[in-house]
Every structure is written in C-alpha cells, then in structure tokens.
Design a protein around this nucleic acid. Sequence first.
DNA 1: TGGATTTAGATGTCTATACCAGTTAAAACA
DNA 2: TGTTTTAACTGGTATAGACATCTAAATCCA
Lengths: 243, 243
Amino acid sequence: MIDKQSPIPIYHQLEEYIKQLIENGILKPDEAIPSEREYSEQYQISRMTVRQALNNLVNDGYLYRQKGRGTFVNKQKVEQKLQGLTSFTEDMKERGMVPSSRLISFEIIPAEPQLARKLDIKENTPVYEIKRVRMADNLPMALETSYLPANLVKGLTEEIINKSLYQHIEEKLSLTISEATQQIEASIAKDTEVSHLQVESGSPVLLIVRTSFLQDGTTFELVKSAYRADRYKFVHTMQRAAK
Amino acid sequence: MIDKQSPIPIYHQLEEYIKQLIENGILKPDEAIPSEREYSEQYQISRMTVRQALNNLVNDGYLYRQKGRGTFVNKQKVEQKLQGLTSFTEDMKERGMVPSSRLISFEIIPAEPQLARKLDIKENTPVYEIKRVRMADNLPMALETSYLPANLVKGLTEEIINKSLYQHIEEKLSLTISEATQQIEASIAKDTEVSHLQVESGSPVLLIVRTSFLQDGTTFELVKSAYRADRYKFVHTMQRAAK
DNA sequence: TGGATTTAGATGTCTATACCAGTTAAAACA
DNA sequence: TGTTTTAACTGGTATAGACATCTAAATCCA
C-alpha cells in the first residue's frame, strides 16, 4: 500500500489510500479509523508523517478528530461534491440524473463592450458563443449560453461541444479552472426561455451567471444559465471564515 | 510576541501575530514574509512549529507558498468576506446598505415533523419562530422566518431580536456557527410575500433556506427567506476542489 | 452496588535534525 | 562580455522522541 521508494510522498500515498476507503464506503461515517500510532507501526513510518496525511484529510473535510478519542470519518457532505462543480454535466451526475444537451447555436462573434469587460479582453476580440438546452433525464432543465475567448480554446468544433467540452479543455488543452464566481437571481422566463424550456409564460426561472478563472487569474469563460425553477434548486455549503 | 510559558500553543500565537500584521496592512499582498528559518531563529522555536503556524494561515487563505522562493501574503479575496456571511445584517453591510427589520411575529411553537427533522430534534420540541421583514436602506428586501431550538437559546426576547440576535448568540451565549448549507431556488411571490414585500402578484422571488451548524455539528438554526428578485442577487465564489 | 481512582491509549504540541528540490544571484569561466 | 557553474538561500518531506491533555474503560474501595 505504501511504497517508500516511490517519488510520491508517503503522506500523500496514505492520504489517497484512506480517501479511497472512505469514498468506496469501506470506512463508514462516524467510524473510527486506526490510530496514528497504529498507522505508524503498521507501515513503519513516523507518526508525524501519518499526522500530515490525516491533517490534510481533516482540512478537506474527510475526517474529524476528537482529542483523546480518535479520528473519525465525516459524513459525505453535499458541499464536497458541489465545491468541485464546474459544469452542468458534473452537477447533474452528482444529483443522480443523466445529463444531455441540444445545441441551438454555435458561432464566433466579436465581443461587444459589456462582454469584453466581463471576460477581461479587448472589444471585438473573437469569442465563441455556444447556446444549448441542457437536459436531465431527457427533460429540459436549463437554457445555457457560454462565452469563451477564442484564443484560449482554438479549434473548437460542434463535435467537441457535443462530446464533452470540459474534458477537451482539461485533457487536450490541459487548462484547469481553479476558481469561479456565481451570481444567482430569480426572474420570470423570457420568450426564448419559455419555448426552449417548455414552461408557461410567467414561470419563474433561476438565473445563474458563472465566471470561471484559470490558475493564473485569466478569465476563461462566462456562462449564463436560466434554470426551470420547478426542477432546479441550487445547493451550497459554506464555512464560516475565521475572525 | 511569543510567550513559551503561555498555555496558548506557540504555533497559535505566531499565527495570530502574523494574521494581525496582514489585517492591519503592515504585511501587504504579494509581499514575502520572513522565511521559516528566520522565524525559527528569531523566536527560538523549532522550524516545524513555525510550519504549523504558516500551514494554518495557508489553509485559511492568508498566505501562499512558492517552493524555493518563499511565503507570501495573499490578496484579501471577496470570497473570504462572503464565506463568513451568516446573517442578513452582515450581508447588507457588505453591500454597503443599511439593514433594518420589522418584527412580524415571535413565538415558541412545538416542532412539527418536517421542521423537527430539519433541525435534527424530536417532534414537538419547543422552537422559537421569528418572522421578520428585512429591509435595506428602508426598502423591503426579504421576508424571513427563523427557527431555533429553544433549549439552545434560552431566554430570547423581542428586545434581543430587534437589537442583534447574532451578537447575542455569539457574545452572550458564546456559540459559534461554523458551517451553513443553503438551498436556493426561484419562485413566484405568495400572497403574504406580496403584501409584506410590496411587490405585484406574479413577481419572482429568490427563496433561500439556510441551515446553520455549530462546531460540534448541532443544527442550530433554520432560516427561510424570500427575497425580492428585483433587489437581491446572490453572489458566491468557489474554488475548484482538488481531484 | 456505586462512586472514586487508576491506567491505557488517543490526539495535541514541540523539539532537533536530516536531506531533497526548486530558485536566484553571485562567482567562475570561456 | 556573455555563458556556465556553484553556493546559498527557499519551502517540502521525513524521522524519532518527549511530554501534555483528554477520554473511556478497568480497577479499587467503601
């Protein structure tokens, strides 16, 4: 399980190992995991190294400690799942639904002033505009429009979009989204939303505007979505900041 | 600065000290702080102890490290402000508005099954129910109903509520909310909401249900709010979880 | 039996040391 | 002068041990 010769740090190996046991349900919530000294003896590693692994897992919310008692498995929180959320696809899968989508339009347009400001690029810079109806279990869930600076994601095709845009971005272009800001508000469905989402006029929708950033701070994408209020609820967990 | 005889752990003292320097602007963003070895020598403490302090500050987002270069002060992110958000009052102040509220009703009721489940208490346990219209710059912003288990916050009075419920909870009862989950959805204003929020019937509202937890995991409060969609937008930053 | 005390074992704090791996700038070299 | 090497930093990983503090079970005693 633990390979001391590996270039991967020991604490990280132990971390991944324990994380696996939790995610596979072998270690159950509120169950005590072996003590630090047990890990230390079993794998012949120092107790401080074990602590480093456990501390990371505590920080990530997988474990919690009780002085004098032991270290325990945390309940799988919705939060952990949602924090990693980047795409509609991931979100729906988390909710146990099958995501799909129908492309409405796909073109390259010059960024008008407002969009340019939001994407932090110059006016009229080419931008991909992708409009899609997002579905869950084959029912319309949201109408989504994405804007991506063309210079960041060259050679985008309909095929890639229909397959998995995010997979392409992460694996082929090896770009990683590190942070995102969301603005969420309520509204009444507009005409295009009424028709694409198949709701009655006057129906409420949840508008979510997400701006995603890369590690270096580059603005990567702007996504405007209108969700059917009767089908979608946004769930979100937050920790109180230290004073 | 560092008192080795103090019952307060050394790493914690150093942590608070550095945090102060950052919050008071003495250490500026992207500025390097002294190296681990410097702290170690200056205060005659072990480097591992210094690392424990710095690690905590990195985890809390105050610092970031660069291998081979040093440890630097982070920019104060909006996220950090929003993460600490717990109450309507704090939220409005962040937005530069003056919060106020009008009490509609205040009573102790037995928890019905659904509420009991959400608060994680037994059925018919006494619960405070507080209904208020929340205002920003004297304009109705939201209709809010709070539920708090009576045994957790004994002796609540109208006066306390009108003054500052959260201040009372944190300072008098010394309870700290460590985590909260929010569910956000869009809807159409109901009759009571129409009248209290002074909107037309058919107007959209943003429904937010917040459940707050104490450090030990106790469910502390359930707050249901209906915000005027034309005045309120929920903003939220998230980091991508590590894979 | 029931309450106080002991004890074993858990996490928490801290030390002192060692070596590794990036980064940078000065020193040596061509 | 311009390039390369080197040395002196930085944080990252890992060890082995000490003592503190808290918890719960075992033990003892009235």
